[in-house]
Each structure stands twice: as structure tokens, then as C-alpha cells.
């Protein structure tokens, strides 16, 4: 479904080079819930953004269903971005728009007629269980409710992939569980492939089938969740699995 080949990305910060990603190779298959785990500053946020090319790699290629989308211009990318939804740690909802209008936004961008939009948004409101909040503004919602709205917005244009950038990091453990359950439901019922990045091993344990461990811009380990949890290969992975011994807390 998604293939990253030899991705490199360097940032220039105050005349000082930072290698955010180094020689990243990654493959996500259809139906996966693929976890990318690493500490903050490991490059995982940059990595997830190279998939929908919010960040363009300096070197290497991004393939979506064997199409090299990293060679495309911003305009050529538009139809692909409709197929790749994204949610964020800070939700990034429009403060000026109601719950309904937030979810409708990606559909309006595609010029879909308002009757079809209304049907679709109402369906999604049922899925996320927020029908009665339809006319409310995001400021009146809790963190978990905001993330539900963001999820509905991200899947409104029936994407095949959903990217999750630390989607539960701003939420308490209880709310995290309900959001993870919703993501799992979306994966199983709607067949949407999920790529999520996180620094919490619990998130990976709860819903992922595959995991990649990233450290200092490099993938140090990549396998099925069972294998990685049973036989961690790298020191970083062992540390992530056993946070009580970690100095990164």
C-alpha cells in the first residue's frame, strides 16, 4: 500500500544541520495497523509527514500503490491526499466551524453537493457517537470528543489510509482507550489501513499488528508486534518495552 525507499531528510536550523531521517525503508500493507514508535526528536513526526508529503524528502521515494507520489507536484498530489486522511495530536479543528462544518470541510473542498455531504456527515456523526453535538463548536468539546471529530473529518472522503500523528498523546488513559477502540473499528469495519506514530508502547500493544522502532532518524527494528515484543533486537526497543528502567521518562 505504502512504500518508503531510502528516505533522507535534513533540516537547517540556525545554520546547523539536523538529520531528521536517514535511509528509511518501510512498507505498510493493506489492512495493517502499523505503529511507528520512538522518543520525541527521533524523527517520527517527520516520517509520518513524508507519507502524504507534507514534508518532502531530500532523497528517496514514496510509493502509494506502486505510484511514485514523491515525484508529484502539490496539485498532482490532491487526489492522493483525498485517499490518505490524517489526524493530529492537537486535533487541528477549525475553531470557527461547527462540528458538522468541520467534518464537511474535506467534502466541500472536493465540491461535493450539499445533500450528499449532509448524508455522509450524519453517518459519520453516528459512527463517532456525537450526533447531538452537530451544531456545537470545538471549544465546547472535550479532548476525546475533538479527536473523534477529527477522525470523522479525516475519513469523510473515504480514504484508504489514515495517518495518526500522536493522536492520543494529549488524552488521558481512559479517553486514549476509547479513541484506540474507534481506530480499530475503523480499520476492521471500513478496511482503512492505519499508520500511527506514538511514544507510548501501550498504544502499539493495544492495536498494532506491525511496528517499526525509530531512533535518531533511523529505523532500528521493524517486524510484527508479536516478534518485536517477544524478542526485541535493539537496546532502544528494550528500553521502550520496559520504561521503568528508562532515563527518558
Amino acid at each position: 500500500m505504502i512504500r518508503l525507499e531510502n528516505i533522507h531528510k535534513t533540516f537547517l536550523k540556525k545554520h546547523h544541520k539536523i538529520e531528521a531521517l536517514r535511509a528509511i525503508n518501510l512498507q505498510v500493507d493493506k489492512g495493517d495497523i502499523f505503529g511507528i514508535i520512538g522518543y520525541s526528536g527521533s524523527g517520527k513526526s517527520t516520517l509520518v509527514r513524508t507519507i502524504n508529503l507534507l514534508e518532502r524528502p531530500d532523497k528517496g521515494a514514496v510509493y502509494y500503490k506502486d505510484v511514485e507520489i514523491s515525484a508529484f507536484s502539490e496539485n498532482q498530489l490532491i487526489p492522493y491526499r483525498h485517499k490518505i486522511g490524517m489526524i493530529f495530536q492537537q486535533f487541528n479543528l477549525l475553531a470557527s466551524a461547527t462540528v458538522f462544518d468541520n467534518i464537511a470541510l474535506p467534502l466541500r473542498l472536493q465540491g461535493i453537493d450539499s445533500a450528499a455531504i449532509s448524508t455522509k456527515v450524519n453517518e459519520l456523526l453516528v459512527l463517532i457517537g456525537l450526533q447531538e453535538k452537530k451544531e456545537d463548536y470545538p471549544s465546547s468539546l472535550s479532548g476525546g470528543q475533538k479527536q473523534r471529530v477529527a477522525i470523522a473529518r479525516a475519513i469523510a472522503s473515504d480514504p484508504e489510509v489514515l495517518l495518526c500523528d500522536e493522536a492520543t498523546s494529549a488524552l488521558d488513559p481512559q479517553t486514549t482507550r476509547t479513541i484506540l477502540a474507534l481506530l480499530q473499528e475503523i480499520n476492521q469495519r471500513l478496511g482503512i489501513t492505519i499508520v500511527l506514530i506514538t511514544h507510548e508502547i501501550e498504544v502499539v500493544r493495544a492495536i498494532c499488528n506491525k511496528v517499526a522502532v525509530i531512533s535518531n532518524g533511523e529505523i532500528v527494528e521493524q517486524d510484527s508486534v508479536e516478534n518485536v515484543f517477544a524478542q526485541p533486537q535493539s537496546a532502544i526497543t528494550r528500553e521502550l518495552l520496559n520504561p521503568s528502567l528508562s532515563l527518558h521518562q
Binding site: P79, N92, L109
Partner: peptide, 29 residues
């Protein structure tokens, strides 16, 4: 306007003009 909101619109495949009209102006109103 928080940068993330613009980023979210880009991730939806919004053009620059759509971002101006549907995100920047309403959010800054």
C-alpha cells in the same frame, strides 16, 4: 492561526486558494 490547522487542510488536499478562503479568513475573522 495555529500552524497545525493549515497543515490539516493541506493533508485534505486543499489548494492554496481554498486554504485562504476556507481556513485562513474564517479562522482569523
Amino acid at each position: 492561526i495555529p500552524y497545525g490547522v493549515i497543515e490539516a487542510a493541506r493533508s485534505m488536499g486543499a489548494t492554496t486558494f481554498q486554504i485562504i478562503r476556507k481556513v485562513l479568513i474564517p479562522e482569523a475573522l
